[in-house]
Structure formats: structure tokens, C-alpha cells
Design a protein around this nucleic acid. Sequence first.
DNA 1: CCTCGCATGTAACACGTTACATGATTCA
DNA 2: TGAATCATGTAACGTGTTACATGCGAGG
Lengths: 175, 175
Amino acid sequence: MLSNTGYVILGFLATGPHSGYEIKQKVDVSTRLFFAASYGQIYPELKKLDEQGLATGEQHQQGQRARVEYSITDAGRAALDEWIDRAVTKVEFRDEGLLRLFFADTDSPEQRLRVLRAMRDDRAATLAVLEQIKSKHLDEPVERRGLALDYGLGLFEYAVNWCDRTIAELEQQAK
Amino acid sequence: MLSNTGYVILGFLATGPHSGYEIKQKVDVSTRLFFAASYGQIYPELKKLDEQGLATGEQHQQGQRARVEYSITDAGRAALDEWIDRAVTKVEFRDEGLLRLFFADTDSPEQRLRVLRAMRDDRAATLAVLEQIKSKHLDEPVERRGLALDYGLGLFEYAVNWCDRTIAELEQQAK
DNA sequence: CCTCGCATGTAACACGTTACATGATTCA
DNA sequence: TGAATCATGTAACGTGTTACATGCGAGG
């Protein structure tokens, strides 16, 4: 069995040959919000993919610089398709802000407000990043992958609004 | 430094003495949605808390049955407060459904719809659990911790609605 | 008597991040 | 010439889950 990271790599290889370095870059500007990956996973995973015949690596020497380009195989495409159709769509999130808020509850409203404001700023920053990504993609031919971006945008909009609403309520109560 | 799990334990101990078993139960019905913990973390962490003087364990023998009850110390309370006020409110989520959807995009609309429907069902199930928890808490004196529940409820409502909306759009396009 | 819930704990494993080591090429 | 970027990779570490081992007590 492959790890999720392995399938993510296959997913990118399905759009064309890539080096490990390029895959890392692609992950960082696309799936990172809901699935990150580091070199420490990518490179070993590429080797494993090669061993299992799901991808093949080729040395593409550019002068003295090493560069290994991986391509997906038919078996790789089949494995990717099979994975997409597995009915596992588990979502798990770890929210340190919410956690702090949860335990701040018994304390002063000032503490709760401090936590809420920090949460708000944090989520607003992420939202801004997403909006920037969206505006960048506007001039490109409509990206079908935009679905995930759309989802994230709505999610963080909700988060920011919730924080604003809750801050307002607490301030109301405090006065 | 303590792990987040350590602070979560301190957070529960701040409301009164608990055994490791009880903490696990509390986590499972409250923070689990945004922060889970297993026995494999809880028991070693309780020992560490004791060693660092942030909590103290006492044997409460009930007949032949072993039971260690931990209480928070003043140093523990201070550490908890300090942690709550640290301005780290990072949220990270891993969404396998979104990931599959992302890589399904280049394929058939049928595949995308299958993924979306699986996502919808999964999120609707979580939403139902949250609603059940909320209804349980209605007869209790108003829980200030309800803030986190409220946030989760809204979040999963958004997720279900987004899935429904997107499914409808794709079906429209397909016909 | 047997099952379920209470209760504690550990060892092996899986996963992922961080930091480090190394070196080429490009561009200001 | 020096910084940034391209490029590959590993070792150590941290964190968390799963599976297992063990045994008491209560109620049907």
C-alpha cells in the first residue's frame, strides 16, 4: 500500500513528468492548504513508486546538474484512479485556536477575547493568501482544480466571520 | 516544553481531579473534533506532568482496583494560562475528500460526482453527531464551552452545503 | 458465568517535519 | 562575487495511532 503522499505525487505526475523539486513546488501552491508534503517524504516516496512500477525515473543531466524526471506508468494511472474512487473522504482538523478558546472559557472574558482576536487575524491571513491565489488564476484558462480553492475560500470566510461575530458578542456582554 | 496534549490534560485537570481514563473520555466527547488524544499519549504525558510538578497523581484504591487520580498544581495552572495566551492559533486540516476531488478533476464528471457524494455523506454524518451533542447539552446549564461546538456546527454546515451546491452544478453541466 | 465498562499501561509502527549536507547555475 | 534558486537526498526527531497485555467490579 501507498501513503497518501504517494498518491499525491502520482496525481501530479499524471499531468506530465516532474522532478521531486517540482512536485514540492506544486504542492506548496496548490494542495498545501489541505495536504502538505516535505522533501523528506517526496524523495523516498518517488523511489518507492519507481520500485513498484507506478512511475519511472530518468536522469536528465543538464550540464553538471543532476535532475531526475519521473513519469507515471499505466500501472500508476490505474493505482491513482483506484485511490480516487475509494470512498474514504475523511477530514480531520487540528485547531489550536479553538483548543485554547475551549480551555479559556472558564477564565476572564479578556482572555477569551485575546484568543479570538489572534484566531481572527490568523484566519484572515490565510484567507488573504487564498484570495491572492485566486486572482492569479483569473487570467489563466479556467482551472478545473479551482473547486478546491473555492471550498477553502468559503471555509476561511466562514471562520473569519464567526470570529468577528463572536468577538462582537463578547464585547457586548462585557460592557 | 510540553506538547499540546499535555496542555489539554492540564485544561481538564483545571476543572477538577481526573484519572487518565476519564480524561480520554472527556476528550472523546468534547475536543475530539479539533484535537484528539489516545491512551498512548495520555498516560505517559500524565507522568511527565507529575515529574515537572504541574500535576500530582494520587493512588485512589477502590478495593483491588487501581486508580490514579491527578490534580493540577499552582504551577500547572500558571503553565496552562501562559499557554492559552500564546498567540499561536494555527489551524491545519487534512481533507482526503478534497484531495481526491483535486486529482479527479481532469477525469470524468462521473468520478468527480462520486467523490463529491462521498464527501457530502461523510460531512453530513459528522454534522449529525455535532447536532446530537448540542441537543444533549440543551438541558444542562448553559455551557460556556459551547463556543467551540458552535464553530464546528457552522463549519460542517458550510461543508455539506458546499457539496450539495457543487453536486447540483455538476449535474446541471452533465445533462 | 459472561459481558461490558472501568482502569492502566507499553511496544511497535506510521507518518511527517526539521535540520543538515552537498553542489550547480543564474543573475544582479 | 555573492545571493538566490535549482536540485537531491538523509538522519534525527517528534508526535500520534494501533494493537496488545492485564485485571477488577457490576449487572444481567
